[in-house]
Design a binder for these strands. Structure first.
Length: 405
DNA sequence: CCTCCACCGGAACGTGAGGAGT
DNA sequence: ACTCCTCACGTTCCGGTGGAGG
């Protein structure tokens, strides 16, 4: 009879192929990135001619198509290399996963069929195994280091070694592509590494709303069934994403979640309303994610603002008020309170994270202070704060006082 | 115009944890 | 096992400040 999943797998009929909307999907066309693709291809074409391509640094914020572009070009390159019989390949490494010199070299050595344990050996031994492995045949290897900034912040030795490896190889050639979303990260590096890694630089600027629209339109045909999207859906997704950072990933997420919401509600079409709901849902998730990873003290400060805006019949509070509430909460928790100086730092951090809003105002005779208010809905932070068992003792977070107007 | 509130935020310093070197 | 160094986290101290009220 009716299986539990019956309605869930057959129903809806909104999506034709949801995978197309995932950020990992590489479309066969990347709108508004022709310039970058061409630039990258120009430089890498050296590999096909038997030369060593220059090292490349790629900059751009999240969701500007850096990774997609590199993967796209690398697929094309490897295909061409196969046709021409040249021995040339790309290795993609996410530096967030392989975040130390040892792990990177161990991984690379393994790719070249060397048996290296993931821990235990001295680093230079792993390094020379990798060199042996790669030098065993005449080939060109392009190593892509995604999120190099993460790697650089832990010391530049790995980058230093990689960038001068060519001098120690007889047959093989290595070139590097670094992908970073931090424009200033090279400041952390040794000048020698800086100049060798940044021989060529490619910038990915954020997309505007029009460009985001094109990106979405390019994918809907595969992703959705025919005519399930309302007319305003895509422009709205594009506009919402553009108003943040021009993040294509966010635009795609919005579209996907809108579809999911429509599907789940049994609707035959995706409407503007679904996009609004999706936007809210993503925002709540984002806030929850940020709040969850806050240090304890910072959570208490945030709780203070939350409690204040519930107990008092107003929205904005002076630093003094917040600090007093903070002391009170620390007292309830049986913890030592930090100094006001320290707390102002937390307030500034929460402000930068966009969880609260803090503006310096002068109240003349009554001093100068920051006016602090919650800049996200109470309902989106309250449950997450309560998840922290250390904060459970604060009853006033839980209590829902009636708002009076 | 001056005062003075109530806080801002820079600087210097103390402390303990963790990593590198030896 | 040992020291040395760096780093994150906090504290103490303090000079600085916009504008309401005198």
């Amino acid at each position: 009879m009716d299986n539990l999943f019956e309605g869930l797998i057959s129903g809806g009929g909104i999506f034709a192929n949801k995978e197309v909307l995932r950020p990992t999907y590489i479309p066969e066309k990347l709108p508004h990135r022709t310039e970058q693709i061409k630039g990258l291809a120009d430089i890498l074409s050296a590999a096909l001619k038997g030369e060593t391509p220059s090292n490349i640094l790629i900059y751009g914020k999240t969701g500007t198509g850096k990774t997609s572009t590199v993967k796209y070009v690398s697929n094309e390159l490897e295909e061409m290399a196969r046709k021409r019989g040249s021995n040339c390949s790309l290795l993609y490494i996410n530096s967030e996963v392989f975040d130390t010199q040892y792990r990177i070299f161990a991984y690379l050595a393994r790719v070249f069929n060397k048996r290296v344990p993931m821990i235990g050996w001295p680093t230079d031994m792993v390094y020379s195994e990798f060199k042996k492995g790669i030098d065993a045949e005449e080939r060109c290897v392009i190593v892509v280091l995604d999120e190099v900034d993460k790697l650089a912040s832990k010391g530049d030795e790995a980058l230093y070694n990689l960038s001068r490896i060519n001098g120690e190889l007889n047959n093989a050639r290595v070139s590097l592509i670094g992908i970073s979303n931090d424009l200033t990260f090279t400041d952390l590096l040794d000048p020698r590494v800086q100049s060798s890694l940044g021989e060529e630089e490619i910038i990915f600027s954020p997309y505007n709303a029009e460009q985001l629209k094109d990106i979405l339109y390019a994918r809907v045909e595969k992703a959705f069934n025919d005519s399930v999207l309302g007319d305003a859906v895509i422009p709205l997704c594009a506009a919402l994403a553009a108003s943040e950072h021009g993040d294509a990933r966010r635009a795609l997420d919005l579209l996907r979640v809108s579809g999911e919401i429509a599907e789940r509600s049994g609707s035959k079409k995706v409407s503007e309303e679904h996009v609004r709901l999706a936007s809210e849902k993503l925002e709540v998730n984002r806030v929850a994610e940020v709040v969850k990873t806050l240090p304890l003290q910072s959570k208490i400060v945030l709780s203070s603002v939350l409690v204040l805006s519930r107990e008092r019949n107003k929205r904005r509070f002076s630093s003094g008020e917040v600090y007093n509430m903070y002391r009170k909460l620390c007292n309830q928790l049986g913890m030592d309170a930090l100094t006001q100086r320290r707390v102002t730092d937390f307030v500034s951090e929460l402000d930068i994270l966009g969880l609260i809003n803090a503006v310096i105002v002068s109240r003349g005779r009554y001093g100068r202070t920051k006016e602090i208010s919650l800049s996200v809905p109470e309902e989106s932070v309250q449950p997450v704060l309560l998840e922290d068992y250390k904060l459970k003792a604060i009853s006033s977070i839980r209590v829902r006082t009636q708002m009076t107007f």
